[in-house]
């Protein structure tokens, strides 16, 4: 489905997440679920079978007692810019990278539920619908009309709130502009974060906040060595937090294959 005009990279959306400012409140996780019509947990769901397009993980420095220190790392689809593992393994072509935005898109309607992509994803950022989506009676009235609910048996994941991107694009067209005003397009987790730890913007625009933050010395990306060029940049002033981003074993053996 990717056409030949692949080179016209209009924007390369990405995030800069300040780990030092994350207090693990979980606002991003519920805001994401509200925005994207993700259903509440099935009674049997666990942390392995749940649906959380963005999930905040707690990491620690490995010490015991009073020396122990923790940090929270919000983990969502990293929107790999290069060799995204989920794209190449999909037998259904249900995953693609939008050359206009850099967003790795997942098409639940094409998905046959083989979960190859979940196995391939080095970040465990993809989630499978193990159960029929179900909302308590009446709560379906609160669903967001800009996002279609998914069915059981398909994989879904973060797409930088594509419903909001559509709305921003329509607004841009209505105003007669061609480029989206950065203020019009912001994923739900960014808007919801009470501490302002998550920033969102165009990495191609070198003056944008995300691009500037990505260039900072304390900025890092998860599993950078496997060469997938993720577009989620984290930053922390603590060295042990930055070290959690490395794969457990160094070297090329952790690359795909």
């Amino acid at each position: 489905m990717i056409s030949e005009n692949k080179k016209t990279l209009a924007a390369r959306y990405g995030m800069s997440i300040d780990v030092d400012r994350c207090n693990g409140c979980g606002s991003c996780m519920v805001a994401c679920a509200v925005e994207n019509n993700v259903p509440p947990a099935n009674a049997n769901a666990t942390d392995r079978t749940g649906l959380t397009w963005i999930r905040v993980f707690k990491v620690d420095n490995g010490l015991e007692g009073a020396d122990r220190r923790s940090a929270f790392i919000p983990l969502l689809c990293q929107h790999c810019g290069h060799d995204a593992p989920c794209v190449s393994v999909c037998p259904q072509q249900a995953v693609d990278i939008d050359p206009a935005t850099g967003v790795v898109g997942q098409m639940p309607e094409r998905c046959l539920g083989c979960r190859y992509c979940m196995t391939a994803c080095p970040y465990h950022a993809r989630y499978f619908n193990w159960w029929d989506p179900a909302w308590p009676a009446g709560m379906e009235k609160t669903l967001n009309p800009d996002v279609a609910p998914r069915m059981r048996g398909v994989v879904e994941k973060c797409n930088f709130c594509h419903g909001r991107w559509h709305a921003a694009k329509a607004k841009t067209a209505a105003e007669g502009n061609t480029a989206i005003d950065p203020g019009d397009y912001m994923p739900a987790c960014v808007e919801a974060c009470p501490t302002g730890a998550i920033q969102f913007g165009d990495l191609n625009d070198s003056s944008s906040l995300v691009a500037r933050n990505a260039r900072r010395a304390e900025s890092f990306r998860l599993l950078e060595s496997i060469g997938t060029d993720p577009k989620i940049h984290y930053r922390s002033t603590k060295a042990w937090v930055r070290d959690t981003a490395h794969p457990p074993r160094p070297g090329k053996e952790n690359a795909r294959g």
Partner: peptide
Amino acid sequence: HRQSHLEHSCLDCHK
């Protein structure tokens, strides 16, 4: 879309 070279990604037209 193909004729006008505006075929980018699935999520252009799907939500």
